[in-house]
Amino acid sequence: MQDRDREFRAYFEARAAVVRRTAFLLCGDWHRAEDLAQTALAKVYVHWGRLDRSGRVDAYVRKVLVRAVIDESRWRGRRPETVVEAVPEPAEAATGVEEAMDVRRALAALPPRQRAAVVLRYWEDLPVAETAAALGCSEGTVKSQVSKGLGALRRALATNRTVLWEGS
């Protein structure tokens, strides 16, 4: 195996699952998430030497994922079918899978950029500046998108659950 492949394998084994989860949170579909993750990781392989030296591999992956999801949402917007569901009705207290479904539906109801901003800030734990870089927008826009996104999630999930955040 070439050095390139060996080094990339180490990255793949360490990060593939994380990339797939982030992709899922961005798109809401595990199958699609896997395709997105494969594409992002294949692109990393293409640019491995440069990315590895720069230490920007994860940032590159995030940018690929976010752009793909946002582009796809635009595309779907012009097609008859849509995967984004309406904001769900307030649910009974939920645990486990039910809770997962509630959160998933609430995330899916967010506009793609808001969803990406929330996922990158709070799941990937990125600073505002890096979130802005991944989204290709200003830091002010990130703050605005995150605020709106969290507000929408709060409204969707608040019933029968403790409001987990305030004033965001």
């Binding site: 949170l25 486990g96 899978v97 809770e99 959160v103 995330l107 929330v118 709070y122 799941w123």
Partner: peptide, 8 residues
């Protein structure tokens, strides 16, 4: 909360 979406 976001983590809960990954439960299954």
């Amino acid at each position: 909360m976001i983590k809960a979406a990954l439960a299954d």
